[in-house]
């Protein structure tokens, strides 16, 4: 039980790309446990979106409020700065646009 994860070791022991609603029962995981973390990334909730947030880079002051208020972890940071929306998952709720103190985010109709 003392095994520690080696650097770079693959953490996803359950390969969910092999599990779908057509998978035979013998190939599902025991007790439907998933031996991995964060596999929901492979499910793209961006499909749900009917309005899309657009960032106006000129107005953005990198205060990170938008990233904090996002219910879907869709505003990632890179090197201390927010980068483009994760449109694969953004559901278009509009919280970021409303919360932005600098009006740097605009909601556009459609995906």
């Amino acid at each position: 039980m003392k095994k520690k994860l080696a650097k770079g070791e693959k953490t996803m022991r359950t390969d969910i790309s092999r599990i779908n609603e057509q998978t035979p029962h013998q190939e599902l995981t025991e007790g439907l446990m998933v031996f991995a973390g964060g596999t929901s990334k492979y499910f793209e909730t961006g499909e749900w979106r009917t309005r899309t947030p657009i960032l106006n880079h000129d107005l953005c002051r990198q205060c990170m409020v938008c990233s904090m208020v996002c219910p879907d972890s869709c505003i990632p940071l890179k090197d201390g700065e927010r980068v483009e929306f994760d449109y694969k998952h953004c559901k278009g709720c509009g919280i970021c646009a409303k919360a932005c103190p600098f009006d740097a985010i605009e909601m556009k109709e459609g995906r």
Partner: peptide, 25 residues
């Protein structure tokens, strides 16, 4: 409690998995 090897127990299952899970059990 396996550090670095998280697992998830007790999912919600849609119909297309539930019957298969029962058969395995």
């Amino acid at each position: 409690l396996n550090p670095g090897k998280p697992i998830a127990v007790g999912p919600y299952s849609v119909t297309n998995y539930a019957m298969e899970a029962k058969k395995n059990q």
